[in-house]
Nucleic acid binder design. Structure first.
Lengths: 209, 209, 209, 209
DNA sequence: GATGAATGAGGGTTCATTCAT
DNA sequence: CATGAATGAACCCTCATTCAT
């Protein structure tokens, strides 16, 4: 494997475990069995390495979801459940990029959305403006009754559930098991999560009472 | 104001803006117009300062929610909506602790739950084991049909929505406004969010199809 | 016990274990359960605390040896062995000053003589000029044939043996026991040491061949 | 000269003058005209720098004494005087390692043996277990009548004399000269010291009276 | 007589980065 | 293409000391 790839692989592991600023280039290069200077040589600086790692997962995710959306594009309508499934599957498929099979992408997304200045978030909307739009458009058909703005917010409620759950998956799994002697397997969890967010997307506030 | 309080105030601002590890003690003490050594004197080390900041908000939140829960304790049953309101109000009320009125607590929670090792998360469950339990218990009555384990997961879906939305509130608000010339005000947003999570909590996966 | 005495007691323990510069006032005051500022209050600064600790043992030693020398002053002559015994006993008797019974005095002497600049060594000769002289004078009678200058050097050879051995006593004891399943008890060690230094004092270089 | 060598040279000077803990890395690097971080880069940390400095002298001493011992290995027996000479010469020859010609090795030995925890002392016995043994073995032939354990102690009495005297040489020289208008030159001092320790090694305690 | 609070200086160490090779 | 060496800046923390109380 090339040094550059080894660096990316090591970096994503470190970022996953400790976040961006708590990870030092020394740790990364040590893990990659590469020279300290190699990061600067291959990526310029730390910031660009972070972006390279992020970009790798983001483009993979984008490819995944576009491919899936293209398949159903012709058919007139698509159910909300199908859309959520596509979203979740596209996220989960990014695990293929990592040797360890961990959900690095979700962790990176969380880190990106946690940044108060939001460099990475801006990067997302700059580089991938279409995909988000397409999903929202399809949702608007699948779950009628919302304005574009209302849907914008609902989708972020949804993202919160998904990002948070998948990010804490392992920890929640352990707690669940130790406390209730039960934890859902992956497909079961995804079903529950899908049900939750669809239930949420469909719920009208006037219907609460 | 005492140096200790100035340090806490400065620290929470910094943590809010940049996270824990990206914030240096020099920044904090500079902001607090205090000596670098003062952190060590008053808190021992950086870790304990983080905990002190966190603890301040967490205990305030805990007090808030307990007070509200105590009020409705006698009444036979309580609606899910009321419970969610109590939760949200208890979170929002912590803004009183901060001079700037920013939602520091949510940011701290997000930081805490983003930690892969989860020191702070463990701290939460160690120090405040009851409140979470109480809310879940009341929810079990308000939304019947779930086992404790199922509810455990649903509540975390809910937490994801709430934490994520409130954490990104300002940013989402700006986007919403610039893109749709509309953004919900606070009470409206809370209503939507409440509707979403209650819809999610109630949704059964078999009902999806 | 007064704070001042507690400080001295704590300080000598710390110096014994780690030397002067590796011991911080915080350690000392913590051990003494006293305030950090108490050292400066009672002794002025760290240097003067060191001197106070040293002075305490040095004056005790001086009293010990003067008392013993006074007893034999009248008798015409005194054997070298007796003199060495007096020296060793006067050193060992300083253990009474320490609660733990450790040979703090020897450790302090070693620390003092290890200083390249020799502040403490100068302090010794300034404050206690007579005792050393008296011992050398008596030795000159007990072991005739040496000039004062020659004896000056021989006495320092002697001091090296005594200081080094007593300082490393415990460590050497442990090694001896683990390696040879034998270690001399105190009186036996003192006999051997006495024999060694007297043998050394008496040995003339021309007699070597 | 390489930075690494400059650091070692500067460090040994500083340690010689002030001991280990009283010497700061900033002093060392300033003296070496190197960056503060260079110590960390080349040695890892301060402890390992200390060990590197110590190791340099210790291995040189070990080489010196082994070379000398090898020369006399074939001859049947060797006198105690010869052995002591070999020891002293091997120590003094380490002066060649230092530009200033000071007896750094003896100072380092004293510092090492002064440490109460004895990290460096343990390092010596771990890394150079044979040389000490060889000297003791030869001494056992040269000075018959002692058990191995007895000789172990006597050798340490000897080490005390040698280390102490050589360590304080300069200071004692000055005092001797100012007080007696006389001080032995190097070869004369070594003769006296040799006579002393041989006299000590040979002296039996029953023979004292 | 004693202490809690505070401070400037400096401790060892680690940072991202540069550069000659 | 890659690296060992080196660096200035900054890291957290601890130092001895001061001072108002």
């Amino acid at each position: 494997m090339s040094t550059k790839k080894k660096l990316i692989a090591a970096a994503e592991k470190c970022f996953y475990e400790k976040g961006f600023s708590a990870t030092s280039l020394r740790e990364i290069t040590k893990r990659a069995r590469a020279n300290v200077a190699s990061v600067n040589y291959h990526f310029g600086d730390k910031k660009q390495l972070i972006q390279a790692v992020f970009e790798r997962y983001l483009s993979a995710f984008d490819n995944n979801i576009r491919a899936r959306l293209d398949l159903i594009q012709s058919s007139e309508s698509v159910s909300a459940e199908t859309l959520i499934r596509i979203l979740l599957d596209s996220i989960l498929e990014t695990r293929k990029l990592s040797a360890s099979g961990e959900l690095i992408f979700i962790r990176l997304l969380n880190l990106a959305y946690s940044e108060q200045q939001g460099h990475l978030r801006k990067y997302v909307v700059r580089e991938y403006p279409d995909t988000f739009e397409k999903v929202v458009s399809l949702l608007q058909v699948a779950i009628p009754g919302w304005s574009r703005a209302e849907l914008f917010w609902r989708v972020h409620f949804l993202m919160g559930s998904v990002f948070f759950t998948l990010n804490s998956w392992q920890a929640l799994h352990d707690i669940s098991e130790s406390e209730f002697s039960y934890a859902p397997d992956e497909s079961r969890l995804l079903e529950e999560l899908t049900a939750f967010v669809i239930g949420g997307l469909q719920a009208h506030e006037e219907k609460i009472q």
